[in-house]
Computed example of a mutant assay.
Amino acid sequence: MTHPARDLLQTTTAALAPDPRSNPLVPRIADGTAPRSVFAVLALEQSWVIPADRRAFEYLAERSLVRDPEAAAFFATLAEGEALAEERLASFARACGVNETRTAAYEPLPGCQAYPAYVAWLALNAAPADVVLALAANFSAWGGYCATIAQALRTHYGFTDEACAFFDFFAEPSPELESRATAAVRTALDAGRLDETSAQRYGRLLQTYEAMFWNALTAAP
């Protein structure tokens, strides 16, 4: 018999699963019809997203440490993961022809940066346990996108394993992160500190901003 926390994570993830039509780009990458130029833009946008999310997660971990240590452990693990992802992103960017000069001159797309801006809002304003639930649901969709992209980059675009490591990292299931999310949600439920309505709202907005990210990339010149 599963714990209510695990059940809640599963049902929330299912309820917030994105409409396949909300992401027009990943299916095109999957079948090899997306232009190679979009990968440089993806790398450049992620060079803004990853460090921003890392700092937001670090702040959430700090906010949670005293009252909600299980949530703090979840956010600390996320922050560590973003740091590792940033290292792998450099290899992908190089494979896309992105250098320091291009990175410095790049103007990020508002539609792509709405997601990390909202994560920062959550870090400042939302109850940590509610954010755990919302993020856990969103990460499921993101991981699936990354798995699809990693395979397509190798199959259709000739990228090396090193260049694909950024997407491999997010595509790989993380039992540790799942365990920490379950512990944080369980503790909040037991203490009556989890607002499911707020968590669902946050998760819905995260999924919407995720869709905006991919749509902005699709429309990028």
Rank of each mutant, 00 (worst) to 15 (best):
D53F: 09
D53V: 11
R54A: 08
R54P: 03
R54H: 09
R55G: 05
A56M: 06
A56T: 01
A56G: 03
F57A: 08
F57D: 06
F57L: 08
F57S: 08
E58I: 08
E58N: 07
E58D: 11
E58W: 05
Y59V: 10
Y59M: 13
Y59L: 15
Y59Q: 13
L60P: 00
L60Q: 06
L60V: 06
L60S: 02
L60F: 06
E62K: 12
E62T: 11
R63W: 00
R63K: 11
R63Y: 04
R63S: 00
R63M: 00
R63Q: 06
S64G: 05
S64H: 01
S64W: 02
L65V: 08
L65S: 09
V66M: 11
V66R: 14
V66C: 10
R67D: 14
R67T: 10
R67I: 07
D68T: 12
D68P: 05
D68R: 13
P69I: 04
P69H: 03
P69M: 00
E70I: 08
A71F: 04
A71C: 07
A72G: 02
A72E: 00
A73V: 02
A73T: 01
A73K: 00
A73C: 05
F74P: 01
F74G: 02
F74Q: 03
F75I: 05
F75N: 02
A76R: 13
A76N: 11
A76Y: 11
A76K: 09
A76D: 10
T77A: 15
T77V: 11
T77M: 15
L78H: 05
L78Q: 05
L78N: 06
L78T: 03
A79D: 03
A79G: 07
A79M: 04
E80W: 07
E80Q: 13
E80N: 09
G81W: 01
E82W: 07
E82T: 11
E82D: 12
A83R: 08
A83H: 08
A83C: 09
A85R: 00
E86K: 12
E86I: 10
E86F: 15
E86R: 14
E86M: 14
E87Y: 11
E87P: 09
R88T: 02
L89S: 03
L89Q: 00
S91R: 15
S91Y: 13
S91C: 11
F92S: 00
F92Y: 06
R94N: 09
R94E: 15
